[in-house]
């Protein structure tokens, strides 16, 4: 980060200037495109740029490379991009709206709700693999509705939402454990959900969640200015004419749709939603109109990188992507905490 700032100072771009922000976004888009190319081309069999182009143009559909690109690499790459941006934006929204640096999708019950419904479908409809994706999504949304409904009874303050999220997660966790105890066969499904990952992803599974993620991303950008006003505090925001309960509820639902959609096909992938928004704010400041797109790009790049490493580090064996994320993200976050001067990272 220091290097980036030094470079910007040298070319006369001050932080928070328009030129700086455009440069950051342009740089991230370039990195994302490189990441997408590497994700498609690197793996157990290496694929050239020419092969990728001909696969996209639907040429030579009978070749091995075409099948690998179309049915394995592209779905996996799209999955990593979608999950990374969805979880990062979900975390960015929650940290801003709840004014809580430690907020991430699991705070509002997304993970526990999705996990319960995933286990329930594994227990009672084990043959229908698509149903578990939809059920996990519905579970995530229902859990957030429950959290907000309880919080509303006490005024829907930030603290009420966080506390009711903890209580609902704990309660849903107990139901999940009961199902696991009564139906031990679902332990395997539970383990797969908790580890998460992108192997075996198909375009069918992605298309359902992808549409929700894209719509929620656009809606998040539309609401980003209102989220800035909300950050002034409830009384100031209300005095400026902001309907605070409507914005808070809409933001929570958007965060739930983003995280629930990602979890529904990728399982529990932690860490992106927590650290990426912090890094984004470290680079572009606290304006949500920038934090949201920068988090989306950084989340996608980080997830692509982790998935790539998960595939190639111990090939032909694959490590769960969540483990790589923690290995890379943990020390990097500690580095930021230590290097970040007071106020820049955690205020």
């Amino acid at each position: 980060m220091n290097l980036l700032q030094k470079f910007c100072t040298r070319i006369n771009l001050t932080k928070s200037s328009k030129g700086y922000n455009v440069s950051v976004i342009a740089l991230l888009i370039i990195l994302l495109l490189i990441g997408i190319f590497l994700s498609i081309s690197i793996g157990s069999s290496k694929i050239s740029l020419a092969d990728i182009v001909s696969a996209i143009r639907l040429k030579d559909q009978g070749s091995n490379n075409y099948r690998i690109i179309s049915f394995v690499r592209i779905p996996r790459t799209i999955a990593a991009v979608l999950v990374g941006c969805a979880l990062a934006v979900s975390g960015a929204i929650l940290q801003s709206v709840l004014n809580n640096s430690l907020a991430s999708p699991n705070v509002i019950g997304v993970n526990s709700g999705a996990g319960l419904f995933f286990i329930l479908t594994a227990a009672f409809f084990p043959v229908n693999i698509y149903l578990s994706t939809i059920a996990a999504f519905i579970g995530a949304i229902l859990a957030v509705f429950l959290v907000y409904f309880i919080a509303r009874k006490t005024g829907a303050s930030r603290m009420a939402i966080v506390l009711s999220g903890v209580a609902v997660s704990s309660f849903i966790g107990a139901i999940t454990d009961t199902v696991l105890t009564l139906k031990p066969d679902t332990m395997i499904a539970r383990a797969a959900f908790l580890i998460g990952g992108f192997s075996g992803i198909t375009m069918d599974k992605l298309s359902f969640a992808g549409v929700f993620i894209l719509i929620a991303l656009i809606a998040s950008l539309v609401l980003s200015y209102d989220m800035n006003v909300l950050a002034l505090g409830d009384e100031s925001a209300k005095s400026l004419g902001l309907n605070i309960s409507r914005i808070r509820f809409s933001s929570l639902i958007l965060a739930a749709i983003l995280a629930g959609s990602a979890i529904s096909f990728a399982g529990h992938i932690g860490f992106v939603g927590l650290i990426v928004p912090h890094v984004a704010r470290f680079i572009v400041g606290h304006d949500n109109r920038l934090v949201i797109p920068v988090s989306a790009l950084m989340g996608s790049i980080f997830t692509l990188l982790c998935d790539l490493l998960a595939r190639v580090l111990f090939a032909p064996y694959e490590i769960p992507v969540g483990i790589i994320m923690s290995f890379l993200g943990g020390p990097f976050f500690i580095y930021l905490l230590v290097k970040g001067r007071r106020g820049q990272l955690y205020d």
Binding site: N99, L232, G233, E235, S239, L240, R281, H286, D347
Partner: peptide, 15 residues
């Protein structure tokens, strides 16, 4: 647009 209110205790946002 008619009425504004400046509270005593405010969170100090990063802005």
């Amino acid at each position: 647009r008619k009425v504004s209110f400046l509270p005593q205790l405010r969170s100090v946002p990063n802005i």
